[in-house]
Design a protein around this nucleic acid. Structure first.
Lengths: 313, 313
DNA sequence: CTGAAAGCGCTTACAG
DNA sequence: CTGAAAGCGCTTACAG
């Protein structure tokens, strides 16, 4: 591919001058600029971002770690991050980790070697080394959609899960449910127990305790929508009806939740805004040569649809 | 972050020697190697992939363009591409384009500036400039899951849509359907009419022609599963029953298609294998400094579930 | 077996 | 207003 030198030669100027017109920097004489611009167009020159990054000691690239793109919540978040990044000239390197510590570490290494300017983490394993290895090397990271402030240097954009769980319990209790279960995710995720714990606390406030799904529960709350939808599948294959026999509640409000065949009662959360904000925070930190060190909270409303009803009998 | 020089100083050797042990190249004396390795560990040194890429004139990065990650088929494909890439030390830059020509062009520019070694395209707009601009600059590209060999230089991993449509028509005709409709996608995608055309040809073989969905169709075939599922939603909101009043067929066999609330009759396609193969082809081409220039075809079986039945009456 | 030197393609003061 | 020079952090022949 052609280089600055090819352009310079063709325009009969020096590399510096070509560089100046490309970056729109300092005052270049009009006729010179025109000659250079024509040369660039003629040759079809595109500046080498790798060389530029080496010189600038900044890659204009972000890393994102996503546990599982099969979950539309993460997919939306990833798309949002990519859009926000490319809008300001940043590329994004994606790692799909399934919260596997080994993959996370490899992703961390790759991010560091490629010198990403910041990382957005949509989920990691419990006790993951990933945030720490990044932070220690001065790459700013923000946790999106989960995470307590384990490390002060982290940026966190979080859901108010505790409040959401209170709202869910209010809803269920109001319908008459007294025996409720919780379905945890299978990923051993950092913060993955938080909704469950919040849910149990909310139950305790009503004088209730968790029961097993198999043990006569009349309602079940799932850690997220995809689990809720899988739970509906499981229940119905066992011959139980939702919501007549068992009520089901999700979390996320993925597009599918509104489908006529699903109509899931769930907690709405805004993945798009979250991704946008995550990029904003991490890029600002990168430019300021500091960590994000900020915690924000998003509170999420309950959307009541048709998978919750009065308990049978 | 620390550099080769920091390591060299600490180990009391030259940059060349450090480079040699890192790359496992040429014979380095055992005690020297040990000293260098200790220095690397002490410092927490990670080689700068950007500098390496500049020197090597190869980024070890791939681009992938995905129309829409909300479609699980694309999500699976993207994950598969990323896995295959990272397994051989390649990073992947993702662009979500929604088949918008403007976004495609920006993505193309970004890929070129960042000097990706190859690009996997999961979908582009009709008449897109993207493949051409890449190909002309000698970056190998493979089209995954669609595409006629418009440009000999392209790699294509395709579905045999025509055969699949024949199978679908056989199935529907066998059930007794004579009035069938087709739901196209909204994206103005390259090759996006191919399934529809294949479907019409298959119908013609039975002496049938396409009717409008609103015009008394007893069965409808959708361009893909997500459209099929949205169509079910639409039909049911209008008070029609699936499959009692209208049969519905999809394409892709996304995980959701097997759900108890959906049980969609559809064509199974293997996104994971497709992604793996795409990376294999594009990386081999990049290493061989050539284009892929190869066309492969995957044939997909029909999976009959519960959204197709005999027509009413 | 080890190191000095050139070069990958840019940017950035600094002369002129 | 324009260009020569140094340097970003590596790799790669090539001497020694």
């Amino acid at each position: 591919m052609s280089t600055l030198i090819d352009v310079a030669r063709r325009a009969g100027v020096s590399k510096s001058t070509v560089s100046n017109v490309i970056r729109g920097a300092s005052l270049v004489a009009e006729p010179t600029r025109l000659r250079v611009e024509r040369a660039i167009a003629d040759i079809g020159y595109h500046p080498n971002a790798i060389a530029r990054a080496l010189k600038a000691r900044a890659s204009s690239a972000l890393g994102i770690v996503v546990p599982d793109l099969a979950n539309p919540f993460y997919a939306e978040l990833a798309v949002s991050v990519e859009r926000a990044a490319s809008a300001i000239g940043f590329a994004v390197l994606t790692a799909h980790t399934e919260c596997a510590p080994k993959i996370e570490e490899e992703a961390g290494r790759a991010f560091i070697e490629r010198r990403v300017d910041g990382v957005v983490i949509a989920g990691v394993s419990l006790g993951s080394s990933l945030p720490g290895m990044l932070l220690d090397r001065d790459v700013p990271v923000v946790l999106a959609s989960f995470g307590e402030p384990a490390d002060k240097r982290l940026g966190v954009i979080d859901h108010d899960d505790a409040a959401a769980m209170e709202t869910i319990v209010d809803h269920l209790y109001g319908l008459g449910h007294r025996r409720v279960a919780f379905v945890s995710q299978h990923l051993r995720e950092y913060g993955g127990e938080r909704r469950r714990v919040g849910f149990m606390k909310a139950l305790a406030g009503r004088g209730l305790t968790l029961v097993d799904l198999e043990d006569g529960a009349t309602a079940v709350v799932a850690h997220n929508d995809m689990l809720a939808i899988a739970t509906i599948d499981r229940l119905e294959r066992r011959g139980l009806r939702v919501p007549q026999d068992v009520s089901v509640v999700g979390y996320d409000d993925v597009p599918l939740a509104a489908h006529s065949r699903v109509r899931l009662t769930t907690v709405h959360s805004d993945a798009v805004e979250m991704g946008r904000r995550a990029v904003e925070l991490v890029v600002a930190a990168a430019r300021g040569n500091r960590h994000v060190a900020l915690r924000e909270m998003q509170s999420n409303p309950l959307v009541v649809r048709s998978t919750t009803a009065r308990p049978p009998g």
